[in-house]
């Protein structure tokens, strides 16, 4: 149930941001700091999500098979391979490492 609350709040917030952009008069958001923050937020949030999702399990820090998957994904992104290839390679690598190293 609480998951639905998170979804509802997230959806509403994201929609209102879209609507606000079309609705507010020019100039209200035309501040350099606003633009810079909006441009930088995806950078910091995505970087943090990558790190947390790869190296944490609940509240503990771990290095396991996911790190290998991320490393391979990094090479694939650097080689500009298609999105689905990047994601699939990370998953396959992680699954293979788990086969070889049980419990990782």
């Amino acid at each position: 149930m609480t998951v639905w609350i998170g979804i509802a709040v997230g959806c509403l917030g994201c929609y209102l941001l879209k609507l606000a952009g079309l609705s507010v008069p020019q100039g209200v958001l035309e501040r350099p700091a606003v633009h810079r923050i909006a441009a930088l937020l995806p950078v910091v949030l995505l970087a943090a999500l990558i790190a947390v999702q790869t190296f944490s399990d609940g509240q503990s820090l771990v290095i396991d098979a996911r790190a290998a998957g991320l490393a391979v994904a990094g090479v694939a992104v650097w080689r500009r391979w298609p999105f689905l290839v990047v994601v699939a390679l990370a998953a396959v690598t992680t699954a293979l490492v788990r086969q070889v190293v049980p419990g990782s």
Binding site: P42, L46, L49, Q53, A65, A90
Partner: peptide, 15 residues
């Protein structure tokens, strides 16, 4: 199937 590693890879491609 390693799907828990797919999400960080997706974020990396977005970043």
């Amino acid at each position: 199937l390693g799907l828990d590693a797919a999400a960080p890879a997706a974020f990396l491609a977005l970043l």
